[in-house]
């Protein structure tokens, strides 16, 4: 049983979610230093490195394939997510969101990219953290607004394409629905067209698109 909204109950049109997660994968999975992230996130709180009300750092590195190290803000969570056994950085919008579906998606993508850029910058030098720029995972942890259904998948992908066009231009992207059938709607995005993008270029594109 689940409290997820059944497909036949949903209207055709999605509403804008309060909660959505976006994840970038770390390039060198083996070299990723979890303990270092605790120090980095504590420093970010000291330095007000990211916008929002930054509350605390929480360590879940003892949980296999868990949320890793969390930076908790009132408005969002940032985690060194290890779901599926592949480490990445996930930004999850939690509350205080506004705007249309695509505006919220754009905001979440831009926020993730800025956090990732900050992490690359802060770890530059010894054992730098670098991110894969041609893949992202989108997780809609708001079943009321975006149920985990095929219909929702069909409706949300054009919205994501609009957002991603601001990052990758005309390069085509493809989406694969991943994760558990009763989990939140989760999409793995890959750029299938030609081209290379730095994180800085993506940040710039995302911010321009988000206005």
């Amino acid at each position: 049983m689940s409290t997820q909204v059944a497909p036949d109950v949903r209207s055709r049109v999605l509403s804008a979610p309060q909660r959505v997660g976006v994840k970038l994968f770390v390039e060198d999975q083996e070299a990723f230093d979890r303990a270092r992230m605790i120090e980095v996130f504590h420093r970010w709180i000291q330095e007000d490195r990211l916008p929002g009300t930054l509350v605390d750092v929480h360590d879940y590195t003892h949980v296999q394939e868990g949320p890793g190290v969390l930076l908790i803000a009132h408005e969002w969570h940032l985690r060194t997510d290890e779901a599926g056994g592949r480490i990445g950085l996930e930004y999850e919008m939690k509350r205080e969101a506004s705007g249309t579906l695509s505006e919220r998606l754009g905001e979440a993508v831009a926020s993730l990219l800025e956090a990732a850029a900050a992490l690359e910058q802060d770890t530059a030098g010894d054992n730098p953290v670098r991110f894969v720029t041609r893949e992202m995972v989108f997780r809609f942890t708001d079943r009321l607004a975006v149920p985990a259904t095929d219909a929702a998948f069909e409706e949300v992908t054009p919205e994501l394409e609009k957002v991603l066009a601001g990052l990758y231009g005309d390069a085509p992207v493809e989406f694969e629905r991943v994760g558990h059938a009763r989990g939140p709607l989760t999409l793995h995005m890959r750029v299938v067209g030609e081209g290379e993008w730095t994180l800085e270029e993506l940040v710039s594109g995302a911010r321009s698109a988000a206005g």
Partner: peptide
Amino acid sequence: MGVEQQNPMTTN
């Protein structure tokens, strides 16, 4: 990062 303080349910 999405910190505007509007009623989140008023726009979808």
